[in-house]
Amino acid sequence: MTYSSFLQSEFLILWRRKQDVLNALLFFILVVALFPIGVDPSPAFLAPAAGGIIWCAAVLSILMAIEGAFKEDYLDGSLEQLVTSGLSLPLLMLLKVLALWGCVVVPLLLIMPLLSEMLFLPSTVFWVLILTLLLGSPSLFFIGLIGSALTVSLRQGSMLMMLLILPFYFPVIIFATSAVHAAQAGLSYSGSLAMLLAMSLLSLVVSPVMTAIAVKASVN
């Protein structure tokens, strides 16, 4: 096995499991729809809240998508093969995150114009929202993958994984929504975007190593 063949097989597996990605997207739209139904459907409420609503929904659906990232690999033993393959496990984990990120975030971005219309997000702010998703979501995936690797050997691990991981998402949500808010108020938002990028880079450094430790421990 080589790195490129691993990446290829990851994409292939994700393609075969496209129903899961689709489910995560549908879940995303449903969570977004809860807010107009549950709180207030008027543009006066939705337009300022749109950034926050989209981010909360995105965080939840991304967690759903990551939660099962290792489940099948663990059950069919291919996770064990990764550990013994002689390739660098952190690097493999990095590739796995990249594949997963591509397969979940690209469709998410594609339906974003539709949702921003439904939530009356001003078109000038739309691109800021896309930027926050592009810069912020990698760190969601990186941190989430640690939790997923930790709880993979548990039968009822998904709830625990969410409990563990969600507090770590607070800063990402804070900076992302404040960038959107600042853009809506006509203020400078580059600082928040820089923080999102910094958090993604930091988790890029930390997470593959931690995920590798967690995978090794779980496989044993």
């Binding site: 941190i143 930790l150 800063p171 930091l202 931690m210």
Partner: peptide
């Protein structure tokens, strides 16, 4: 026990790295 040790240690370390970020962001 071994797995519990490792798993909690990982979360503790990740939490330690993230705590200043969480605090600052809040």
């Amino acid at each position: 026990v071994m797995l519990a040790n490792k798993a909690t240690a990982v979360v503790c370390v990740v939490g330690l790295i993230n705590l200043p970020i969480i605090k600052y962001s809040v």
